[in-house]
Write a protein that binds this DNA or RNA. Sequence first.
RNA 1: GGCGCUAUCGUCUAAGGGUUAGGACAAAGCCCUCUCAAGGCUUAAAUACGGGUUCGAAUCCCGUUAGCGCUACCA
Length: 482
Amino acid sequence: MIRVRFAPSPTGYLHIGGARTFIFNWLYARHNGGVMILRIDDTDVERNTEASLRSIQDGLEWLELGWDEFYRQSERLELHRKAAWAIFEKGLAYRDFTPLSNQDENASVAGETTPGGWLFNPGMRELDRAESDRRAARGEPFVLRFKVPRESRQQVTVSDEVYGTVSKSTGDLEDFALLRSNGLPTYHMASCADDADLKITHILRGQEHLANTFKHVLIFEALGVPAPITAHLPLLIAPDKSKLSKRVHGPVVSVTTYRDAGFLPHAFVNFVSLLGWSPKNDREKLSLDELVSLFTLEGVNRSNAMINFTDQDPFDPKAVWLNAEHLRALPVEEFARRVVPFAQQAGFAGASEEKFRVLAPLIQERMRLLRDVATVADFFFVEPRSYPAEDLVPQKGDRAMAVRALRKAKEVLGSVPFDRGSIETALRAAAGQLELKTGQLFQPIRVAVCGKKNAPPLFETLEALGRETVFRRLDFALEMLQ
RNA sequence: GGCGCUAUCGUCUAAGGGUUAGGACAAAGCCCUCUCAAGGCUUAAAUACGGGUUCGAAUCCCGUUAGCGCUACCA
């Protein structure tokens, strides 16, 4: 049984890179009928916040993918500590009593003299067990360090499903910490102990961890358990080619920014899944089911993928396009359900699912993000009053022509059934009688009724609005022209 | 600095020794058309650089350059 995990640390909101790691794990799990685990890596008490944990969970829930098991590392500290001391008892780790303040110094001195830099604090590896125990018993603070085998300068090898076989000499690996001086496990220790305990079979994570994997291989070996198979994912980078970061790139990288703009969760998943992965069949718009059945590690590539945002527009154009595609494909019921909150947000009185089921054919294919409802459907809820009178004037016409057109519209629309077919017939005939091009008649009506030059098809719009509203707006426009 | 990874149109990517280097987004143009949107057609746009190997290289090897990552008692 395949078991994968997403293991964020709660130090900020969920950003798009984290979301992608979750998504790839989820797709891999679902594709293989495996188990998706959410594990909160909150061993860094200094930087973790509950608010961050909540916002990460909110972000993940918004994706509408779900997970099967949930753990918090902070509730499993005993497990990590036991694992660390087991390594110590095997003689594969040692206490390092070097005060924190001396370490930078050691590092810089050693860095100058030893090519490859600083690997461990002098004297500490060699401390004999009795002496080490004595100092610890006296209460002297220490970190527990992994004793990287150094004598043979052996190679540590990782067989990564994406990057292939990579190896590193133990001579280039520092004696990393397992336990901090406050007794809490480090990321490396906690992560490996948990992966072992939770029987994680595959680790899909960001490429920034590729170099850490050598340490993890050593830990798993020391623990006497097989290391999970790893698949490192190329990083997501900003247009300046730097790694996506909350601090420098701001809210554009937060998934809540996408949520609040009105991305559909599965459109977002679709977009993100195409960053660093390809189905290799030229398909771009993929449903969740298609994604699940197509997703394989062979399709993951190795170079970083850029998200194309700017100061003016936080969203990659392709993300917006994909969202429009998914939006258009939505069943009317679901479209209505999802758009209503955005209509209410825009302050549209009377916005209801029922109303939007009627409006859907008029607006659905004209929206790219759900928030577009504010600009695409406004005139269905709010009287257009603030457009310039000049907009009523048709092409190659003047105000007099606009007046004639609007009066004629009132005249013919007063006496027909108010459905799109009858309206079209009446209006086309009217254009003929006025000897106007259809556009010259339709455009003034459109502007009068919608308050703008670009709007959904006219006859359907008039029908949806109803005779009373249409006449009120025609009158208002006529007044503006006087 | 050391170590590791990466390099195809502006962006996401396909092509894993033989193709006019393909698709998509974005851009431009045309068509359709009551405007917009959608749709259709077309154009412009790439193998970082230098050496090998080979009959033949985007593809394999080496070097250079550039970018990224790791090098914490952060994750």
